[in-house]
């Protein structure tokens, strides 16, 4: 992917979407790598006893997918300054998670070329499961 520059973007610019398909195995790997061993993320019986439909994806893992979407877009020269997400709905395993982002503000501050990017993840039903923002610094052509 070509490097994105500050001059390339405008309010409303969409960033390339990223689609992920987490499996139970990935959730187990994530549990091990993050140290989050809460059983709702790999033990179906435990999850259902907690009133959940089944094993659900870690909110942090979905936010990681959104982070990848943003850093893939930023390339070598862009920099992620802030990332946040609210976990509004649940992503189940063996379902697509569709990550999206759109530039909502472009501004200069302290000599840096910044952009605010609205980010969100959807499940296959089109429900937004994680919504948030990323603040990024982009290189300039000038």
């Amino acid at each position: 992917m070509a490097q994105v520059y500050y001059e390339d973007i405008a309010e409303g610019t969409e960033i390339p979407a990223l689609v992920k398909y987490p499996t139970t195995m990935q959730l187990v790997k994530y549990a091990g790598a993050s140290g989050d061993f809460y059983q709702i993320h790999y033990d179906k019986d435990f999850a259902q006893a907690n009133g959940l439909p089944g094993v659900i994806v870690h909110g942090w893992l979905t936010l990681s997918f959104l982070g990848q979407m943003v850093t893939d877009w930023l390339g070598e020269k862009g920099r992620l300054l802030k990332l946040n997400g609210s976990y509004r709905g649940m992503n189940k395993v063996h379902e697509d998670i569709i990550c999206n982002g759109k530039v909502t503000k472009k501004y200069e501050e302290d000599g840096k070329n910044l952009a605010r990017v609205e980010i969100w993840a959807e499940n296959p039903q089109g429900e937004k499961t994680v919504t948030g923002t990323a603040i990024v610094a982009l290189p300039s052509k000038v």
């Binding site: 992920k20 987490p22 990935q26 140290g35 893992l61 997918f65 982070g67 990848q68």
Partner: peptide
């Protein structure tokens, strides 16, 4: 590997959500 992000940069530097692992 766990977050399935193949960017080679993350072999030397922490990816954005790595703070989740620093519990």
């Amino acid at each position: 590997e766990a977050i399935d992000d193949p960017n080679p940069k993350w072999l030397e530097e922490a990816p954005p959500t790595f703070a989740a692992a620093l519990v």
